[in-house]
């Protein structure tokens, strides 16, 4: 039984830690970039973001079918159901090209994040 308590404590501490970081970041203004998914295509298919800055990516799925925003380079993965929006935080990143795609329709849903100085 003792172990349970210990784990609970660890978990609570972890959550507290996470929450403290979360609130800290909320204070700083994060630039927002918007992407739309329409007919299994990303609009725009290429977004340019500044290096070393964290940004908030708002992905709006205008299709009735769900889509999964995925990028191996960005290490991001998120399901966006039909006719809904999703928020994904990206960065801060070093300059370079970071392709992303829609995992459910990867042949057409292709895009790239270009990070520039």
């Amino acid at each position: 039984m003792c172990l349970f308590h210990k784990k609970d404590q660890i978990f609570i501490l972890w959550v507290a830690f996470i929450l403290s970081i979360h609130s800290g970041h909320l204070l700083a203004g994060t630039p927002v970039f918007e992407i739309e998914i329409k007919n299994h295509l990303f609009y725009p298919a290429e977004i340019e973001i500044p290096a070393g800055v964290k940004i908030k990516l708002r992905v709006k799925n205008l299709d009735p079918t769900p889509e999964e925003f995925e990028s191996y380079e960005l290490n991001r993965e998120k399901v966006i159901s039909g006719h809904s929006k999703a928020t994904i935080f990206i960065g801060p990143l070093v300059p370079g090209q970071y392709p992303f795609f829609g995992e459910f329709y990867p042949k057409t849903a292709q895009g790239i994040v270009v990070v520039k100085e």
Binding site: L41, F42, A45
Partner: peptide, 9 residues
């Protein structure tokens, strides 16, 4: 190359 127009890729 690839490009998006007319609602298609």
């Amino acid at each position: 190359n690839f490009s998006n127009f007319d609602g298609y890729r």
